[in-house]
């Protein structure tokens, strides 16, 4: 397979300073792109969980997995792409909302099961959670409504079923 494809990768890393830049640095040093990246602590304070999305060929992604695994701070790494997994992303969107557009906006947020979380006389701020496609579809559906500010969390991923990304002994 020589075509670039979307890969979603889950990582457990030591929660030490420098860990994030080691991972980001590996991408730039070896010519990979980071499409999006999210990092947060886990229930164990000493470990962070990362999810990142990159576009590359299957051959490059298998090399990428090995390079990530080689980093001393990486505890475990897994490419979720080809197994059943769940992805979620959060969108916070501030849009212009004139009187005429308010009904339409309300309808769209209901259809997408989004929520309006802040209102001013000229704007609505909307929160939406879902897979990346749903986020994109929602943004697309706004048509001519003007987006003032768009904040996305990037994808989070977890595998389906009872398996989990473990701390390898």
């Amino acid at each position: 397979m020589n075509e670039d494809k979307r890969h979603i990768v889950s990582l457990l890393v030591e929660n030490e300073f420098g860990s994030l830049s080691r991972i980001a640095g590996l991408f730039s040093a070896r010519g990979y792109n980071i499409h999006c990246l999210s990092v947060a602590p886990t229930s164990d304070d000493s470990i962070s969980r990362m999810t990142l999305v990159t576009y590359c060929t299957d051959a490059k992604s298998s090399q990428l997995m090995k390079q990530l695994d080689k980093l001393v701070d990486v505890i475990n790494v897994k490419d979720l792409t080809d197994e059943t997994h769940i992805e979620r992303e959060m969108l916070l969107l501030k849009v212009k909302s004139t009187l005429k557009q308010r009904d339409e906006l309300k309808r769209l947020t209901d259809i997408f099961r989004a929520r309006i979380i802040d209102v001013t006389d000229t704007t609505y701020t909307i929160e939406l959670t879902g897979p990346t496609e749903k986020i994109l579809a929602f943004i697309d559906s706004l048509g001519k409504i003007k987006i003032v500010e768009q904040v996305r969390s990037g994808a989070l991923g977890i595998s389906r079923g009872s398996e989990s990304l473990e701390i390898k002994k």
Binding site: A59, S62, Q63, K66, Q67, D69, K70
Partner: peptide
């Protein structure tokens, strides 16, 4: 000894 050396340049 380094898994990332395997198939890095030559399959």
């Amino acid at each position: 000894i380094d898994p990332s050396s395997i198939s890095k340049i030559i399959e």
